[in-house]
C-alpha cells in the first residue's frame, strides 16, 4: 500500500473556511423567499470561487457526495479508496496531457520501491489456476453491491483489457498478449512479467493498468499462476 497524502484535502478545507468567513455565497443570490424553508442548499462554500481542481477534491472528499465510511474488503473505508496516493495524483492527467520526464522518473522510482519478490525467486505457477484468475473480474467492488471475498476469490481482471487465449474474447484497452510465451522464460523475462503484473508503472509510468501486486489484489502465488498462463507452452495462450 502507498502512503496517502492528506495535504490536498486539508488545503481544500482551509479554502472553504476562508470562503465561509468571506460570505457572499453565489448559491444564495438566486434564492427566492419562497424556496428558503426548503433548505436544500448547504450555502457554506462558494463553488465559483474555487479552482476546478479544488472543487473536484471538495466534491469527492468533503461534500458528502460519497459514502466515505463504507467498509472495504481490505478493512479500510471509502474515504481511503478515494484519497489519492502519490502515483494516482501524479497520473491524473487532463485531456491530451502526457506525463513529463520528472514525473515519469518519480513514478517509476515509487513503483520500483513497491515491488516485493518471492523468497525462493520468481517461478511459474499453475496455468489452469492462472486462467481462471485472468478471466475473473470479481473482487474489491463496493458501492451498491459489495463483493464478498469469502464467497469469491478476487481475480486479476486481465481479460477485461487484454486478448489472451483466443477461446475467450478479451478487451483491447491493453495490448493483445496472445502467444506471449514466445518470449521465453529467461530470468529477465520472468522478472519483467512479474514486475508488470505487480506494478506496471515501473516500466510504463502512468499506464492505465492497475498495480495488482502493489495494492494487494493479487498475491505472489496468484501472480505466479497468471505468469504460467502467459508463459507455459501448454497454456491456451500459447497453443494457437
Amino acid at each position: 500500500m502507498f502512503k496517502k497524502t492528506p495535504v490536498a484535502a486539508s488545503l481544500v478545507a482551509a479554502a472553504s473556511l476562508l470562503l465561509i468567513t468571506g460570505g457572499c455565497s453565489a448559491t444564495n443570490t438566486g434564492k427566492t423567499a419562497e424556496a428558503k424553508p426548503a433548505a436544500a442548499v448547504p450555502a457554506k462554500v462558494d463553488y465559483t470561487k474555487m479552482t476546478p481542481a479544488a472543487l473536484a477534491e471538495y466534491l469527492v472528499l468533503e461534500s458528502d457526495g460519497f459514502d466515505l465510511k463504507q467498509p472495504t474488503q481490505e478493512g479500510t473505508t471509502g474515504r481511503h479508496r478515494l484519497t489519492q496516493d502519490e502515483i494516482q495524483k501524479a497520473c491524473s492527467l487532463g485531456k491530451g496531457k502526457e506525463v513529463d520526464d520528472k514525473t515519469r522518473e518519480k513514478v517509476m522510482a515509487l513503483a520500483a520501491a513497491s515491488i516485493k519478490y518471492p523468497e525462493g525467486g520468481i517461478k511459474l505457477g499453475d496455468w489452469k489456476k492462472g486462467r481462471e484468475l485472468a478471466w475473473s473480474g470479481y473482487g474489491f467492488r463496493t458501492a451498491h453491491n459489495p463483493d464478498d471475498h469469502v464467497k469469491g476469490t478476487p481475480g486479476g481482471n486481465c481479460y477485461n483489457c487484454h486478448q489472451l487465449a483466443t477461446d475467450r474474447t478479451g478487451g483491447n484497452i491493453g495490448p493483445a498478449l496472445t502467444g506471449y510465451g514466445a518470449r521465453g522464460t529467461s530470468p529477465d523475462m520472468l522478472k519483467y512479467t512479474y514486475d508488470v503484473i505487480y506494478n506496471p508503472h515501473v516500466y510504463f509510468a502512468c499506464t492505465n493498468m492497475p498495480r495488482m501486486g502493489a495494492v494487494g489484489v493479487l498475491n505472489q502465488q496468484q501472480i505466479a499462476d497468471i505468469m504460467a498462463y502467459l508463459l507455459d507452452p501448454n497454456s491456451p495462450v500459447n497453443k494457437q
Binding site: R81, L82, S92, P210
Partner: peptide, 17 residues
C-alpha cells in the same frame, strides 16, 4: 469544470479514472 477534473482523477483499488 470540476466534473472534468473528476473524469481524470485516478483513485480506488485499480487506479481507474
Amino acid at each position: 469544470d470540476a466534473g472534468e477534473v473528476m473524469f481524470y482523477r485516478r483513485a480506488g483499488t485499480m487506479d481507474f479514472n
